[in-house]
C-alpha cells in the first residue's frame, strides 16, 4: 500500500498503465491527507472571518457559531478610528521597495559567492550566515541610534534602507540554488569572453527568477507583517504601517478583539493579492531549470 502511495507520489513519467488506474488505495490515502491538511488550514480563517462580522455584544456573550446579527461595525472602525487607507499605502511602499531591492542585492551577492572564486569567499559566506544567529533584540538600540543619527526616524527609509543591503537568508537561499545550476552554461560564456557582470545578468539572473520571486514574496510578507520595526522607528500615526497600526486597538487592560480580528483580516488582503499576482510567476519560475 505504502509503496503505491510513494509510487503515485513521486514524479512518474507518463505511462499508460498508471494513468488508466483509478482510485487505488494509495491515491485515496494521498488525497485524504491533502484534504485534511487543506481543511486544517482553511477552517481557522473562515471561523475568524465569521467572528469579525459579530457585534461586540455577540462577541462577548455569543455561544453559537454564527453571529445573530451580521455587522460591518468592526470594519468601519478599522478604517475610521485609524487612517487605515493611508497606512496600507505606507505598508505597500515600504514592503515593496525593501523586498525588491533587497532580493536583487542578495542575488548579486549570491552569484559572487556561488560561482565566482576569490580568496576569502568561504569566510565571507560564513560571516553572512553568522548574522542570522544574532538575536534582533541586541541590534535594536545600536540600529536605532544609527537611524537617529541619519535623521531617518519617523520616515519610511528607516525601515527600507537597512534591507536594501540584502539579507543573509536570501543570499544563502539563492546561493544554494545557483550551486545546483549546471556549470556548462557559464563555461561556454567564459569561452565567449563575457565579463562576470554580463554572465550574471544574461545567464544567472533569468535562471534564478523563480527563487527570486519566491523570496520577494516572502520578504514582502515579512516587511508587511513586521510589528516591532514600525512601532520603534515610526512615531506618527500617519507614517504607520497597517500591521503596526492595528496595535492602536490593543489597550493595556481592554482590547477590542473583534475590531482587531477584522483589522487583521484587512491586513491580509493586500498580501493575498500580491501572492495571487505572483503565484503564476513563482510556478513558472520554479519550473525553469538550467537544462530545460
Amino acid at each position: 500500500m505504502t509503496s503505491k502511495l510513494i509510487q503515485s507520489a513521486t514524479h512518474m513519467p507518463p505511462d499508460s498503465n498508471q494513468t488508466v488506474r483509478k482510485f487505488s488505495l494509495g491515491d485515496i490515502t494521498a488525497n485524504t491527507i491533502l484534504v485534511v491538511l487543506f481543511v486544517v488550514i482553511v477552517v481557522p480563517f473562515i471561523w475568524s472571518a465569521i467572528a469579525s462580522f459579530q457585534t461586540p455584544l455577540d462577541f462577548v456573550s455569543g455561544k453559537g457559531f454564527l453571529p445573530s446579527e451580521w455587522t460591518l461595525t468592526n470594519y468601519e472602525k478599522v478604517f475610521t478610528d485609524i487612517p487605515m487607507t493611508r497606512m496600507i499605502f505606507n505598508g505597500l511602499f515600504i514592503a515593496g521597495t525593501a523586498s525588491i531591492g533587497g532580493v536583487f542585492a542578495s542575488a548579486i551577492a549570491a552569484f559572487c559567492l556561488a560561482k565566482v572564486s576569490f580568496k576569502g569567499r568561504a569566510l565571507y559566506l560564513s560571516i553572512v550566515i553568522l548574522t542570522m544567529m544574532i538575536p534582533p533584540a541586541v541590534l535594536l538600540i545600536p540600529f536605532y541610534t544609527i537611524m537617529y543619527a541619519l535623521s531617518l526616524i519617523d520616515t519610511p527609509w528607516a525601515l527600507i534602507l537597512p534591507h536594501l543591503t540584502g539579507s543573509a537568508f536570501a543570499i544563502f537561499f539563492l546561493r544554494q540554488h545557483m550551486l545546483t545550476i549546471p556549470h556548462e552554461l557559464h563555461d561556454a560564456a567564459i569561452m565567449d569572453g563575457c565579463s562576470i557582470a554580463s554572465i550574471f545578468f544574461r545567464i544567472y539572473l533569468p535562471l534564478v527568477k523563480g527563487p527570486m520571486s519566491v523570496l520577494i514574496i516572502i520578504n514582502f510578507m515579512l516587511h508587511w507583517n513586521d510589528l516591532l520595526g514600525p512601532l520603534i522607528y515610526l512615531n506618527s500615526v500617519e507614517q504607520m504601517t497597517p500591521t503596526a497600526g492595528l496595535s492602536f486597538f490593543r489597550g493595556q487592560f481592554a482590547t477590542e478583539y473583534p475590531v482587531l480580528l477584522a483589522g487583521s483580516l484587512v491586513c491580509i488582503v493586500p498580501t493575498t493579492i500580491v501572492f495571487l499576482l505572483f503565484n503564476r510567476q513563482i510556478r513558472h519560475g520554479l519550473l525553469i531549470t538550467g537544462l530545460k
Binding site: 535594536l140 538600540i141 536605532y144 541610534t145 537617529y148 510589528l227 516591532l228 512601532l231 520603534i232 500615526v237 496595535s247 492602536f248 490593543r250 489597550g251 493595556q252
Partner: peptide
C-alpha cells in the same frame, strides 16, 4: 500613542539614543 506591550521597548530605545 503606543500599544502597552511595545511602549517600554520604544521608550528605552529612544532614551538610549
Amino acid at each position: 500613542p503606543v500599544a502597552w506591550t511595545e511602549y517600554w521597548t520604544k521608550l528605552n530605545t529612544q532614551f538610549a539614543s
